[in-house]
């Protein structure tokens, strides 16, 4: 009775497998390297003394309320981590000698996963390489939080009209001629604001001047395709909570596969055409359109 053989269905499934197959041409994706005039930060953890001036100034510049907790009856601004009102925070790796203070904030990747996955471009690469957020385009799906390898974007869990909260390098202050507030507050040049070219030069100047002070080069020059925030450290970067990333941008594999499958939308359209034709032929062979689905 079947007018189309088992072979046909296997053939169709084969086409389907091709539709969802992993290997895809590398040309499916253009590289998005960082630019020298992108703005960013240099964080030198060996210079940070943990004064948290940057955290306080960041709140001021971005009009964010303190995360106040009562400790021994006294109120403190003591966030545990980046959160829905904290764009940057100073953490400490340990408690002994040789520990380090670590500043966490958005790394402003050159080719960010959060931007790749964001449905309507709420998170996007803005001017001068900043990873910017446009709340009007955000649907609150939180895929950015899932995709970010640095766990940076935060969500306002207790708001009825929540938004994603993350560092945007104080881009609202740029037209006043001001840079990132955190760098402004730093008394020790542990946080420096500038263009990528300047920051790289400064990082290498420090590395060359005191090679014994640092370890592992400049994080963010190559990691994850380059990040706007560069980090210097005396400890392994993983101890600072920075993931060990290769030179490939984080969304590279996913986009290569997805864009390979859907390149020009050829595969889905071809599959659609083949299926429509097979079904139409089957129905004609088995007595026309009498048979309902």
């Amino acid at each position: 009775m079947p007018t189309v053989s088992r072979r046909t269905v296997l053939g169709t499934l084969g086409g389907a497998a091709a539709l969802a197959a992993a290997p895809a041409p590398a040309s499916a994706r253009a590289p998005k390297p960082p630019h020298g005039d992108d703005l960013g930060l240099l964080f030198d953890s060996t210079r940070c003394v943990g004064c948290r001036g940057c955290v306080a100034r960041c709140r001021e510049a971005n009009a964010l309320p303190e995360d106040v907790k009562l400790v021994d009856g006294a109120p403190y601004d003591a966030p545990l981590d980046l959160n829905d009102r904290t764009l940057t925070i100073i953490k400490r790796t340990g408690d002994g000698p040789g520990d380090a203070y670590v500043k966490a904030q958005c790394m402003h990747c050159a080719d960010p996963a959060c931007v790749s996955v964001c449905m309507l471009g709420a998170l996007h690469k803005g001017e001068r390489g900043v990873v910017a957020y446009d709340v009007d385009r955000c649907v609150g799906c939180r895929y950015c939080q899932v995709a970010c390898p640095f766990n940076v974007p935060r969500f306002q869990w207790s708001s009825a009209t929540p938004r994603i909260v993350k560092c945007e390098l104080c881009r609202h202050r740029w037209r006043e001629g001001k840079g990132a507030a955190c760098a402004e507050a730093c008394p020790r040049d542990a946080v420096v604001f500038g263009t990528r070219a300047e920051l790289r030069a400064e990082a290498h100047r420090r590395l060359d001047a005191e090679p014994g002070r640092y370890r592992g080069g400049v994080y963010g020059e190559r990691e994850g395709g380059g990040t706007g925030v560069l980090v210097l450290s005396a400890l392994p970067f993983t101890a600072l909570g920075l993931p060990a990333l290769g030179p490939e941008p984080v969304p590279a594999l996913g986009e290569t596969i997805q864009h390979g499958i859907y390149q020009g939308f050829v595969a889905p359209v071809a599959l659609f055409g083949a299926l429509a034709w097979v079904t139409w032929r089957n129905r004609r062979a088995s007595g026309g359109g009498e048979e309902e689905p």
């Binding site: 790749s116 449905m119 471009g121 955000c138 609150g140 939180r142 929540p162």
Partner: peptide
Amino acid sequence: GRWWSVWGLAVPTRWNVRS
């Protein structure tokens, strides 16, 4: 989180086709 913003999905000019 921002369910009222899903109308944006119906506007192709708003799409991030990489997503």
